[in-house]
Write a protein that binds this DNA or RNA. Sequence first.
RNA 1: GCCUUGGUGGCGGAAUUGGUAGACGCGCUGGAUUCAAAAUCCAGUUCUUUCGAGAGUGUGGGUUCGAUUCCCACCCAAGGUACCA
Length: 895
Amino acid sequence: MKYDFRRIEKKWQKYWLDNKTFKADSNSEKPKYYVLDMFPYPSGSGLHVGHPLGYIASDIVSRFKRSKGFNVLHPMGFDSFGLPAEQYAVKTGQHPRKTTEENIVRFRDQLDKLGLSFDWDREIKTSDSSYYRWTQWIFLKLFNSYYDHGLNKAQPIAKLKIPKKLNEKEIESFIDSKRLAYVDTIDVNWCEELGTVLANEEVIGGLSERGGFPVIKRPMKQWVMRITDYADRLLDDLSELDWPESIKLSQKNWIGKSEGAEIKFSIDNNFIEVFTTRPDTIFGATYLVLAPEHPLINQITTDEYRKSISEYIDQASKKSDLERQENEKNKTGVFTGSFALNPISNEKIPVWISDYVLFSYGTGAIMAVPAHDERDNEFAKKFNLKIIKVIDGGNKDDCYTGNGSIINCGEYDGIDNIKFKSIVVEKLESENKGTKTINYKLRDWIFTRQRYWGEPIPIIYDGNNKKALEFDDLPLELPEVESYLPTNDGLSPLARNNDWVNVSINGKNYLRETNTMPQWAGSCWYFLRFIDPDNNNEFANKDLIKYWMPVDLYIGGAEHAVLHLLYARFWHKVLFDLDYVSTTEPFKKLVNQGMILGKSAFAHRIKNTNDFISFDMIKDEKTQKIHVDISFVDEKNRLNIERLKQNHSEFNDVNFIKGESFYVSRDIEKMSKSRYNVISPDDICKRYGADTLRMYEMFLGPIDQSKPWNTAGISGVFTFLNKFWNLFHRNEKFYVVDDQPSDEALKIYHKTVKKVVNDIDKFSFNTCISSLMICVNELKSQNCNSKKILEPLLILLSPFAPHISEELWELMGNKKSISDEPYPEHDEKYLEERSFDYPISFNGKRRFNKKLDLDLDEKTIREQVLSDKQTEKYLNNNSVKKIIIIKNKIINIVF
RNA sequence: GCCUUGGUGGCGGAAUUGGUAGACGCGCUGGAUUCAAAAUCCAGUUCUUUCGAGAGUGUGGGUUCGAUUCCCACCCAAGGUACCA
């Protein structure tokens, strides 16, 4: 019998599905283990070989843990709200639900072919109303809660102490000012092309993350999440997480906690408050700078400068973020005409405005210390402002930002600047001119999008009064609309359906909120719904949450380092405070899978012509690189021009200049449809089978590293699986015997078990597979057909290549699925060494090995080594200074 | 600029964390089998070499009996970040 992977894989995939082999049992006595993948957005282009990398890794761990006696929860679902389906709907008029459903079917089909052990009974889709009902419910929980800074946790609004003597309207706005989900008019990132507001996190360098369209600032009414109240806890709790340090660090930087002081600089009868992390440099503060949006500017500007100031403010407001950033190296600013008093040195210092100071951070005003801050230094030099050095940084730098002792500060000279920080703060505090403060970079999370394909926000308005929908009104279903475009005045497409927007409750008329939630909403809590996906009374049963949470292993891409992971942690902490979940953190261990890169192919077009030239013939010609589909390029980088022309008509009129063949150049890039470098797992599955694909993806290298895909190497893994299959066969017939295996066979087997178990724990799947390959080669050369080794070896391999293992397991006469078998353990006794090849080194350089008995004592080893003929040769009359023997394994002779 | 990660054969990558560098796989070379090819199997494969040996883990130093591993300086690549006071 040959290894017929097509038949085997089809058979077992059906078996697992029919028998619900991987159904997670919530009433188990076993210890639990929750393995979660970041669920995919079902995009139109389907899976490429990069997607399954994380799924295969988590599947190996799931199967391994199951075999190790854990009750494993390994679910999968779809993050099915999102922009691409909506943009497609705008273009074609097709309902996003339809495209999304179609894509999900395709994804599911592709995932099934990989033999992944998901419990599909728990599948969820964030765009199902039975799911987003609870997303809306959590939104209302946030709406109806505030953060109690005394208790350091969220509390229901009912517990909020309301100051006396407020009228009804004032009470309402007081409560609104405390809610964790609130409405605010803020300058938002507005993207005209996408017709929507974007979170700061979704804007990169002034352009939208998706699509790369320009983004401008625009004031709008928005729902906002008060994530800043959780800044400290989000930061502190990072330390207890088993996450990659780099991810923890980027979250830390994103939260951006900095300790410093707010200092009051008096000006006439008023004062300007600044935030600084360097109060120790206050003697060097030679001017103040306000952000152009600062409210005091109007008051303090003298008539003489009024015109230039208002011009500057006008210009600054028109600048986009991108333009502001472009000017980073060329600072602009204007003098207000006023002077403020430095509260410590009592010097009169000028007050300027400039857009290098951000209104949204700190107090929107800074004290400028040009001698010890690079930005201030640049500004001062440009506008000829005074520079005073107050910290001794030697003579090297004209702008010294390090630490040192204080200079030019009279009585304080010579003090260490770190000590001086607290001296200054204490002095300011005692004179009521400043306070110690902490600032964060983290901003509140803008939660609304002017989009159709998202969760409707369950709020109605009676004029300006907000009213939350009742529990029974949920889910608030997404209404049908005529067009998926935002309205001309920037309202969400939902505003187009008047029947839906106008609602009457108990005879009273209301208007519905028409914005929808951002895509992050659904993924903020999906791991909780997997625990109890069909519950109609709660988002998930509390006891079940207590049993399954936290997620023991979370695998996904590093691109979610700050966005998804921070938001999900935030919601989880709110739910924890309100006593709905039992853990402060949702994800105990996080592993990032690296990207699989594609090998793009480029044809070279001679500039300003329609002539393409073979890569080997390019001499002085200036050429442009044009992506060509890699499926028309062979391993020797030769392009099949005929097939290219057949499939891509734009090449029909092209003149190809070539010798014998037309050569392309190759480059390694991210895999994407537009780069024509995508390798689909379907093709690989068809040719080699899922087991080969699974093992090859893992064999490619460490899971967390980015690496290029190269299909050429896959034959090695395929050969291995064939060899493995043949190990159980002789003369084309299944052949396994009950004989006692040889000592050598047992030795290699136990060695492999030890290594594989150890490496799975370390997520080093590539070395696991190497060990398995060595093992199979050895057993084969020893003609080992013993059941005593082959049976446990099957279990050992089963997490990696489940289909072939199941098939051989059945051929051995077993009735139940191999996935219920306990994972093998190694026996130390077969690994003990009687003697050892001691490597003998001279002055650290290895020369030869000497076989020595392990039980010898050090003295005998010395004698034996020194009396060896080869030793004599290498010593060559030099006298021995020292002999070093370490761990009974290393011998180094120093002479 | 700053932060993070990484740099080992022709290629993907190993190395028990300071102890035989290049495991395992691809590719390549030679051989067996075959009318032939595919497939399979066996042997070899870091480089240089006067066949004694010598050099070698991005570069240059250092610590050590011994460094891919630790320390210092620098170079390169990928990713993140962007005037956060």
